[in-house]
Design a protein around this nucleic acid. Structure first.
Lengths: 205, 205
DNA sequence: ACCCGATGTGTACAGACGTACTCATTTGTG
DNA sequence: CACAAATGAGTACGTCTGTACACATCGGGT
């Protein structure tokens, strides 16, 4: 180990390399995705980023600081993709199709993001300082959905995306894409007719 | 430390105390709820359960074995509560009310269960052996919902419960109980009229 | 030309961790 | 009554952890 890194006496001194900080954050997300927050350590991240161990405490106040920055970046880039998909949609139909695509593609297309999302939620469930990240993320998602749906529908769609994504990932059964389409259609009624269907008391017979 | 536990020369030998194993599992869930899987260690669980450290490796093959058993118990007791609520409901109306209650009460009423759920999901997202636990849990939940709703509605309701619970826990905004009622009503149309609404192409407006 | 502060690195340390292993104790059996 | 197996406790060991800190290196000011 440590054959390519930490050759004594080389590459030291003043360089002011902000890129290095970014690389560490990205590497941190990689490590979290692979080993979980539980298995994330300064050493693993340093090795993944190709920086010496000392850089960890130099660039970040501590492990929590690093995790916070990493998940903030994850949430920001994630919601950016979400917003882009929604603003690319021209009408309600394509917006609904985009929602279906987001669900069936497992959040943003990779298992990595799913794992990272759960790690973030787990942290947020216990620690309020991470909840600001999830709150901001959900707020951006809802705002994107509100480009095409009324606020209440947006919130419900957001929740449906969350639930269906999780169930499709963690359970072998809920995998039928056509069913996802129908689920979205039950919620995402066009704005003008939503009021006619949703709050109406259900027929009993 | 270790003043009430581990007095040398006392309480040793053959006792065959299955209760002790249970106590360790319960204590393990307590520790996970408080410190997360990341912060769970043999020592903390042993202290919480009031057993010596050596009992950890005696009763369980290792940390993973302990976690697996703990989460299995958690999932079983959790789904039992879910099933009971559903079978207690007499008709569709009270079933829908029960679903709303489950969501608004944060899974089963405590933040502890929410945290544990996320910890389990995080594990399951990465490791297939924990996914059998989540799969079984979701299957039991769906079966309970199918006492009152058709299979597709049950799956969608299950997903909605998941998503709304998470969003209500991790986001300060989605807290209006009346909105939960309306969300459930959009999905949980009575069996006979569901076919009339759900698969129908949406009016374009 | 020289030096000083800024910037980044290498290492050492104290503690916590999982687990293996030895040994004490009790209970069923002969 | 004695013995052996079952059961559980205590401890020690090697590994890995976060973090502090001394120090090397370089750019810019004089």
């Amino acid at each position: 180990m440590a054959s390519d890194v930490a050759v004594p006496g080389t590459r030291r001194g003043r360089r002011n390399d902000p890129e290095r900080r970014d690389r560490i954050i990205d590497a941190c997300l990689d490590v979290i995705a692979e080993a979980g927050v539980a298995g994330t350590s300064h050493r693993k991240v340093a090795e993944a980023a190709g920086v010496p161990l000392g850089s960890m405490t130099y660039y970040f106040a501590g492990m929590d600081d690093l995790l916070h920055e990493a998940f903030t970046r994850f949430a920001v880039t994630g919601s950016e993709q979400f917003v882009r998909r929604m603003s690319d949609a021209a009408d309600h139909d394509s917006a609904r199709a985009a929602v279906v695509a987001i669900i069936t593609e497992d959040v943003f297309g990779s298992a990595r993001d799913l794992v990272l999302t759960h790690e973030l939620y787990t942290l947020a469930a216990r620690r309020a300082e991470y909840r600001t990240i999830t709150s901001a993320w959900m707020a951006r998602s809802r705002a994107a959905l509100e480009l095409h749906f009324d606020p209440e529908t947006a919130r419900q769609l957001d929740a449906l995306i969350e639930g269906l994504t999780i169930h499709r990932a963690l359970d072998a059964e809920t995998r039928d894409a056509a069913e996802v389409v129908r689920a979205v259609e039950r919620i995402a009624v066009p704005v003008r007719t939503a009021a006619l269907i949703a709050p109406t008391p259900l027929p009993e017979g």
